[in-house]
Design a protein around this nucleic acid. Structure first.
Length: 498
RNA sequence: GGGCCGUUAGCUCAGUGGUAGAGCAGUUGGCUUUUAACCAAUUGGUCGAUGGUUCGAAUCCAUCACGGCCCA
């Protein structure tokens, strides 16, 4: 197997520091099982700090609170060692006189990074820090690789991403980011479940990749002898479920798009998509506003979000503005008449440097002008509405103006965070839109959509009037954790092999 | 894909053409209620890779790899 061959060739680097620790491990192996798994802790570092941190030295001695903890040695200072567990840090005190000679000698060989147990009463030092005065201790796991500098930590971005386990050991801010990520997803999930939304899982491997305009990854099914695609969106499956009667449905999971990497793009990323029958895009905007406000309050304890030096207030009502009006507002020199005229709008787009194609209609031209001149300026939370039908192949046409759809995108800090619309539930209109997409695909646009006959069949059974939305979870987490790069909010971001 | 910047000890970083350095970590010894613990001694380097210029290259030049930032 070629894969195995490669694995064998990936020899980890060794150095003298590791050799010294291997020697210590060998010495332990000669005495006992070097990787015991019998110790059970009863306490956690931060909970002890919370429970006992406010008590003074004398109170603690009188209390005689016994604690039993486990964790990684993060620092050694004099007779103290700092242990870190999943909740935080606490010191332990090593009084060698309390231990048999053999154990006292072994403790001297313990290194920063080793994982130990510690049991004993909790006391407080003269400087006011809690410590566990160890009466029993044992090495649970020997660490063979030295940790980064205890003071500077690990700052090398590349190693932080490639060896996230080291980053998590060393960087409290990184642990915090992923804790917030987890809480945000829980909060969003709870919010929707309380509103009777049902969580589902739909296929990641699809025969016809649909629901978005993007290039898919291709994989191969051996038994069926056919190519399949990693999904670019779950949308068409979720709407099939609404046809089936799951009138409020959502999925939080990965999408895959075969695109470049940037501080805002990873080939696999997490989206939440939700669909609600008997609702329209305005209901979705209301829901989004309530949900994000709730999530900010629950997770961060405030609705004011600080991101890269800017402040975004999720407590105030979000601005709502149409694509058309936003272009006029941000470009005082452009008139409504020009923007409505194919020739004049095209001239504006060309002047902006857009490489206009013959196949484009006015809607596509308007969106290009919007993206060039408005998008990045949408700083405070803003819904942009009424996207042209031409660029919205799955969205319902507006009743008053079939040139545009009942659709919105949501922007914060100049970045798109969400996309939602009243769903196109007219099967004949949808079939025509698919045909238009296929024509564009034939014309060379490899991001255009496929014709999905089964999806049309589902619509022909009847999709109730429905609205739906997708929110990019990673970008939302970036915002909530003040992270400049999407890689900071992905535990294992995509990296080129070394 | 383009531009700029980076890659030196396990980690964080100095080092602009003339014997590769510091702090932390490690090792040995001391001290033992410390807070980046402290004191003394000490080990540790294909300077990202390849090629070139030069008497001499971590340093100058070229190409490549990986990463960061900005742009597409």
């Amino acid at each position: 197997m070629s894969e195995n061959h490669n694995e064998v060739e990936q020899v980890q680097e060794e150095n003298r520091l590791i050799a010294e620790r291997r020697a210590k491990l060998s010495a332990i192996r000669e005495k006992r099982n070097a990787f015991p798994n019998h110790f059970r802790r009863e306490d956690y570092a931060q909970r002890l700090q919370d429970e006992l941190g406010a008590k003074d030295k004398e109170e603690l001695e009188a209390l005689g609170r016994q604690a039993s903890i486990a964790g990684r040695i993060m620092a050694k200072r004099g007779p103290f060692m700092v242990l870190q567990d999943m909740t935080g840090r606490i010191q332990v005190y090593v009084d060698k006189k309390q231990f048999p000679q053999e154990l006292a000698d072994e403790i001297k060989t313990w290194d920063i990074g080793d994982i130990i147990s510690a049991t004993g009463p909790v006391h407080k030092s003269g400087k006011g820090d809690l410590y566990v005065n160890m009466t029993e201790t044992s090495l649970l796991t020997k660490s063979l690789r030295p940790l980064p500098d205890k003071f500077h930590g690990l700052t090398d971005q590349e190693i932080r991403y490639r060896q996230r386990y080291v980053d998590l050991i060393m960087n409290e801010s990184s642990r915090r980011t992923f804790a917030i990520r987890s809480k945000m997803i829980s909060s969003i999930r709870n919010f929707l479940q309380q509103k009777d939304f049902v969580e589902v899982e739909t296929p990641m491997m699809q025969v016809i990749p649909g629901g978005a305009s993007a290039r898919p990854f291709v994989t191969h099914h051996n038994a069926l002898s056919m190519d399949m695609y990693l999904r670019i969106a779950p949308e068409l499956y979720l709407k099939r479920l609404v046809v089936g009667g799951i009138e409020r449905v959502f999925e939080i999971n990965r999408n895959f798009r075969n695109e470049g990497l940037s501080t805002r793009h990873n080939p696999e990323f997490t989206m939440i998509e939700f669909y609600q029958a008997y609702a329209d895009y305005k209901d979705m905007m209301d829901l989004t506003e309530a949900m994000l406000r709730n999530t900010a309050q629950e997770v961060l304890g405030t609705t004011v979000i600080n991101y890269q030096g800017s402040e975004y207030d999720f407590g105030k009502p979000f601005t709502r503005l149409s694509v058309f009006d936003s272009v006029l507002q941000y470009n005082p020199e452009i008139t409504a008449e020009q923007l409505s005229d194919m020739a004049q709008a095209t001239a504006i787009a060309v002047k902006l440097g857009v490489k206009v194609k013959d196949t484009w209609g006015l809607g596509k031209i308007q969106i290009e002008i919007f993206e060039e001149t408005v998008e990045h300026k949408l700083d405070q939370p803003t819904f942009i509405t009424e996207y042209p039908t031409e660029v919205s192949p799955l969205a319902r046409r507006s009743d008053g103006n079939p040139f545009v759809t009942d659709r919105f995108e949501f922007f914060v800090g100049g970045r798109e965070l969400a996309n939602g619309f009243s769903e196109l539930n007219d099967p004949e209109d949808q079939a025509e839109r698919f045909m238009a997409q296929v024509a564009e695909k034939d014309g060379g646009d490899d991001e255009a959509m496929h014709y999905d006959a089964d999806y049309i069949a589902a619509l022909e059974y009847g999709l109730p009037p429905t609205a739906g939305e997708g929110i990019g979870i990673d970008r939302l987490v970036m915002l909530f954790t003040d992270s400049p790069s999407i890689r900071d909010v992905l535990l294992f971001p995509h990296m080129r092999p070394e």
